[in-house]
Write a protein that binds this DNA or RNA. Structure first.
Lengths: 233, 233
DNA sequence: GCGCTTAGAATTGTCTACAATCTTGTCTGC
DNA sequence: GCAGACAAGATTGTAGACAATTCTAAGCGC
């Protein structure tokens, strides 16, 4: 699984702002810790000792404490007073709920995008849909396909969502490991249905049909979830 | 405006868990800072100097820094490296967006509640609806009325939402000053309409009609928002 | 007067030290 | 062998000191 930061699709948006922000070590600690949690080097329930992390990252305990508090606020880490931090673990219900939350928030993002797209944007969306078409037929493309749908989703989302809204969704996505994602596209039929719906979503957005666009947005989440559950049993 | 902590409806849920959690000073700093921001002692844009806060709360800068990082993660505070923290300010669009987000999340909460209520819960909801009825006719009851709707909303939400979901919504509510709330109930007609819809929502939840329940949930938000905008111009 | 430079103060970033608390392993008495 | 007490080590919570950076304002040339 040699996947690195490139994989963190959700982080893409928030990166380059304008002037080069000076970096503070708690920021890098946050990023590295997120990566370690995302890649399951640290697994749910694992304790995160301050001194140990400080040594690993080459800083003192201060920045580590700040980073842990940040990650607790984002629900990635759990902290108990005088007992320390550990990687947060989600119950199955909470993981499902996270997907539900993502779904309605994405639906809102789509609704807000309707009526605010330029032809350029629509063209870009169509390019991504075309890429989905290509990926449909390829074998073992579940992961690439999934990642492309996320990119398209982010693009649509960015039409109208504020940076605040973006980072909220990014945080929520972070909270749940995206195991559901690729599992939703394991068969040709699933990929074809999804492509059709994403394509329809873009059409609806262009046509100004917000109800249809939102409905399809919810559907792609539900379809993918249903398929994932089928795989998992 | 002699309102104190009692006013923080959203915090109600997360308070007493089980065993008495040991308190850490960064927690109290967070709480006190939230209160100071909520009550507009510190206003959007105001700088939050670490030393100053440390002295005010009688702690050292360490806990203050942790608290500020937590509040930044919750989007209540903005931090620029080497330049310090300030109270976050929302544009009008962001404030509106926050209400939209709350609306769809509440809608999801309602949908999840359908089919999971006990008769006890429904009875409790009906009590709150009855209280809304009473508050309808009273003059200058906009604020009390609003607060009662929030309580009812929280009750419904709690039927099925995880603690994680609850605190997410609480954080989002915190982010936007709830100026919109009471403004949505300034006339008798608005209060009557709202009462009717909340009552219908409870009925729909009891009847298992999730579409109707969610539709009404979205409506009460939209109605209140529309009325608030009319007042504000 | 206006813009630039530059010292000094103010503020944030980080580290180290120490106190408070928890954890672990051992010992005792039965 | 086992439950509980106790001591030693580990870990977190907090404070204070120093370094790095930014802000402020006075001084200078024009």
């Amino acid at each position: 699984m040699g996947e690195t930061k490139e994989d963190a699709l959700s982080a893409e948006a928030a990166s380059t702002k304008g002037a080069e922000r000076r970096r503070v070590s708690s920021e890098t600690v946050v990023e590295e810790l997120v990566e370690l949690i995302r890649t399951r080097v640290f697994r749910p329930g694992d304790r995160l000792r301050e001194q140990e992390l400080a040594e690993r990252f080459g800083v003192s305990r201060g920045p580590v404490r700040e980073a842990l508090r940040i990650l607790e606020a984002k629900a990635l880490v759990r902290i108990e007073p005088m007992r320390g931090a550990s990687v947060a673990s989600l119950t199955d219900e909470e993981a499902l709920e996270t997907v539900e939350i993502s779904s309605v928030l994405f639906g809102l993002g789509v609704r807000k995008a309707v009526g605010k797209t330029t032809p350029d944007m629509i063209a870009k969306f169509r390019e991504r849909v075309a890429r989905l078409h290509e990926l449909c037929d390829m074998e073992f493309s579940a992961r690439s396909f999934y990642k492309e749908t996320v990119r398209l989703g982010v693009d649509i989302f960015n039409v109208s969502a504020s940076a605040r809204f973006e980072s909220l969704v990014a945080d929520i996505r972070l909270g749940a490991p995206d195991i559901f994602g690729p599992l939703g596209f394991t068969t040709l039929e699933l990929r074809e249905t999804a492509t059709r719906k994403w394509s329809g979503m873009v059409d609806a957005i262009e046509a100004g049909d917000d109800e249809e666009a939102v409905s399809l947005a919810h559907q792609v989440y539900q379809d993918s979830l249903k398929a994932a559950f089928k795989v998992l049993g």
